[in-house]
Simulated assay, not measured.
Amino acid sequence: MRVQIVDNEQFDGSILPDGVSLVEFGAVWCPPCKTLLPILDEIAESYGEAVAVLQVDCDESPDLASRFGVMSMPTVVVFHNGEPVNKLIGLRPRSVYEQVIERYTAASAAG
């Protein structure tokens, strides 16, 4: 799997109803967003179908950015079972994103 680029029309249908979805809110001109993209690609490859990794361009979909309170880029919103549960603002190491994924995939397995 690769990072899937979504807009207003595709967004809601792209969030996994069961499981974990990571949504990166950024822009093509944002240097930290460019640095984050290969990390997200690696995560998407590692987790395959188990985790949806999505990308929203804030310039193309400002309504989505507003809906999730995105004030700076990149912002990664983590969804668990279709609901936003965590927000990571700014560029973080890959391990941080993986820890969040593991927290919620473990919660799904336990529940």
Rank of each mutant, 00 (worst) to 15 (best):
Y97A: 07
S108G: 14
A109G: 05
A50D: 15
W29G: 06
D41F: 00
T35K: 12
A65W: 00
V3I: 13
D12N: 13
E98F: 05
V77M: 04
Y104W: 15
G13L: 08
P93M: 01
R103I: 01
R2H: 10
P84I: 04
A110K: 14
S72N: 10
R94M: 06
S21F: 02
Y47T: 01
L88F: 04
D41G: 09
A106D: 15
Y47G: 02
V3S: 04
W29K: 04
A110M: 13
P17D: 09
S21V: 00
M71H: 07
A27I: 06
C33E: 14
I43L: 09
M71Y: 04
A107C: 10
E9T: 15
L36I: 11
I89Q: 13
H80S: 09
R94F: 00
N86H: 13
Q10W: 02
L22Y: 00
R2K: 14
V3R: 03
R92M: 14
V76H: 07
V100K: 06
Y104I: 01
G19Q: 06
P31G: 08
F25C: 06
Q55F: 13
S21Q: 03
R92E: 14
Q99N: 15
F68N: 03
A107K: 15
M73T: 08
V85S: 12
E102H: 15
Q99P: 02
E9S: 15
R67V: 06
R92Y: 12
D59P: 03
V85G: 09
D7M: 14
N86M: 12
S61P: 11
E49C: 10
F68E: 06
F68C: 04
C58H: 01
E98D: 13
N8G: 06
R103L: 11
F79V: 03
A107D: 13
Y97S: 07
K87V: 09
R2Y: 01
D59L: 11
L40Q: 00
C33L: 08
D7V: 05
L36G: 04
I89N: 09
M1K: 13
I5W: 09
E9A: 15
L54F: 10
L36Q: 10
L40F: 13
E45T: 12
G111S: 15
L54W: 07
N8S: 12
I15C: 02
Q4M: 12
Q99Y: 10
G82Q: 12
L36T: 07
G90W: 05
L40N: 02
L88K: 04
K34S: 06
N81I: 03
N81L: 07
L36V: 10
S66I: 15
F79G: 00
V23I: 11
G82T: 11
K34Y: 02
D63P: 08
I89M: 14
G90N: 11
M73N: 02
C33T: 10
F11C: 09
A52R: 06
F25T: 00
G69H: 05
V96M: 14
L16S: 13
S66C: 10
E83R: 14
V20P: 00
L16P: 01
F68K: 05
Y104F: 15
W29L: 08
L22N: 02
P93D: 12
N86Y: 09
P38W: 03
P93S: 09
G13A: 11
V28I: 08
D41W: 02
